[in-house]
C-alpha cells in the first residue's frame, strides 16, 4: 500500500522533471537562435548578457540619433527604458526583445525625419491665386 502510494508520485515527479528538462533545453535553443540573429559570430561564444548589453546599446544610439534629429518617439523612449530595466535586473531575453523593438521604432522615426526634410514644404496652404501683390 505504502509502496504503491509512493511509487506513483515518484514516477510522476520523474516524468515532470524530464519534461521540464526538455522544455529548458528548448529554451536554451531558442536563446541561441535569437542570438544568431544579431551576429553569427557570437552564436558560439556569445553570452546572453553581452548580447543584451549590445542590443540595449544599439537601441540607445538609435534613440539618441532620433532625439538629435528632433523626431524622437515617446514609445521608443519607454521601450528603451524598460529594456534597460530588464538588463539591470538580469532578464536578458526581455532586454534583447525590448531593445530590438526600441531600435525598430527609433529607425522608423529617423526615416520619418528624413522624409520630412522636404515633404513639409507641400503641406502649407498655397497663396490664393490672383491675390498675390
Amino acid at each position: 500500500m505504502n509502496v504503491l502510494n509512493k511509487k506513483i508520485p515518484v514516477a510522476f515527479a520523474m516524468a515532470l522533471t524530464l519534461t521540464a528538462g526538455l522544455m529548458l533545453s528548448a529554451c536554451t535553443d531558442r536563446n541561441t537562435e535569437t542570438g544568431s540573429e544579431t551576429s553569427s559570430k557570437q552564436e558560439t561564444d556569445g553570452n546572453l548578457d553581452t548580447l543584451a548589453m549590445e542590443a540595449v546599446n544599439q537601441a540607445q544610439v538609435k534613440y539618441k540619433a532620433s532625439e538629435q534629429a528632433g523626431y524622437a518617439w515617446a514609445k521608443a523612449g519607454t521601450m528603451l527604458a524598460s529594456a534597460q530595466e530588464a538588463l539591470e535586473s538580469g532578464d536578458f531575453e526581455t532586454a534583447i526583445h525590448q531593445a530590438r523593438q526600441a531600435t525598430a521604432l527609433a529607425d522608423t522615426s529617423l526615416a520619418q525625419a528624413e522624409a520630412e526634410q522636404s515633404a513639409w514644404l507641400e503641406r502649407f496652404p498655397k497663396a490664393p491665386t490672383g491675390a498675390s501683390p
Binding site: G70, W73, A74, K75, Q112, E116, A119, L121, R123, F124
Partner: peptide, 21 residues
C-alpha cells in the same frame, strides 16, 4: 517655426497642420 508646424512627427505621424489646417 513654419517647418515645425508643417512637419509630421510622432508615431501617429501628425503635423500641427494635419489637424489645424
Amino acid at each position: 517655426g513654419k517647418r515645425f508646424y508643417s512637419s509630421r512627427r510622432g508615431q501617429l505621424n501628425f503635423a500641427c497642420s494635419s489637424c489645424h489646417v
